[in-house]
């Protein structure tokens, strides 16, 4: 694989993702509105009923809005990853995935490029949300917006790799409703995105254990700590390990010798 060829392909994939994203305005709009609805309505309601003790990285009592913003940023990445995964299944059904997979580059590289492009396209919206959240008095240190970038990229890559894995196992778009109900929503709700783990432990130890082992919780905590200029080593290790595992499994899923495609019939 030549470096200039690989970079041009990455550039092409990134441009395509950006153009598609900009032209699907309804998707862009809903991606921005979703966390704001959570922040404006859900968080406002929970603020009065949910007390929060001092938990790291916060050094004082915080409003529920302050607690929930990193979780909502991670939620944006999660839903963006799933939308990207759905787009891959759509591309496969519509045939355009064939074009990518018959490019003269290693398949792992093509999938990695697509994953990276998807994360890069999703990041500006997360930043826009973080800045809009300042109107709700969620004001992390200014340097926190810089420090959170690697955490957002790593978390986005991990969730994107998970979406890639899901897309490699989905035979048709209709299956995605099941994925949303049985994978994405439990992943989001059984995490530390909306409630701290001690609150979940009060509800039940099983739920707290699930949340502790949920890689999405690690993504949330990595973002939360980075936003307040703290580093959560355990969360980072979990995110990196899950990224590697999900990506390797996705590459195997798209392998022509082992993947779903080679076991399933063609058109004729």
């Amino acid at each position: 694989m030549k470096v200039d060829h690989a970079l041009r392909a990455l550039d092409g994939i990134l441009r395509r993702e950006m153009l598609r994203s900009l032209r699907q305005r309804a998707r862009l709009f809903s991606a921005m509105v979703r966390p704001l609805v959570w922040l404006a309505i859900f968080a406002a309601g929970f603020r009065s009923v949910l007390g929060l003790s001092i938990t790291p990285p916060y050094q004082t009592y915080v409003l529920y809005e302050v607690y929930v913003v990193p979780g909502l940023a991670a939620m944006m990445l999660l839903f963006h990853a799933m939308a990207s995964s759905l787009a891959m299944v759509y591309d496969r059904e519509m045939g355009s995935m064939r074009l990518l997979l018959t490019a003269p580059l290693p398949r792992w590289y093509l999938l990695a490029a697509r994953l990276l492009a998807s994360v890069i396209v999703g990041l500006p919206l997360v930043y826009l949300f973080l800045f809009v959240a300042r109107f709700w008095d969620v004001r992390p240190p200014i340097m926190g917006y810089v420090a959170v970038l690697p955490a957002l990229v790593l978390s986005g890559l991990m969730l994107g790799a998970f979406g890639l894995l899901v897309s490699s196992m989905s035979t048709q778009m209709e299956n995605f409703a099941g994925v949303m109900n049985f994978v994405i929503f439990p992943m989001f709700f059984a995490s530390t995105a909306l409630y701290p783990i001690w609150r979940l432990a009060e509800a039940g130890p099983v739920l707290a254990t699930i949340a502790a082992w949920n890689p999405f919780s690690s993504a949330v905590e990595l973002i939360r700590f980075a936003l307040y200029l703290r580093f959560d080593m355990v969360s980072m290790l979990v995110v990196v390990a899950c990224l590697a595992a999900f990506f390797l499994a996705a590459v195997a899923g798209y392998d022509p010798g082992r993947g779903l495609w080679s076991r399933r019939g063609g058109e004729g």
Binding site: K2, D4, H5, A6, R8, A9, D11, G12, I13, R15, R16, L99, L100, A103, P104, L105, L110
Partner: peptide, 9 residues
């Protein structure tokens, strides 16, 4: 141009 990029042009 997307196809060309995938082929390194």
């Amino acid at each position: 141009r997307y196809h060309a990029a995938l082929h390194g042009l």
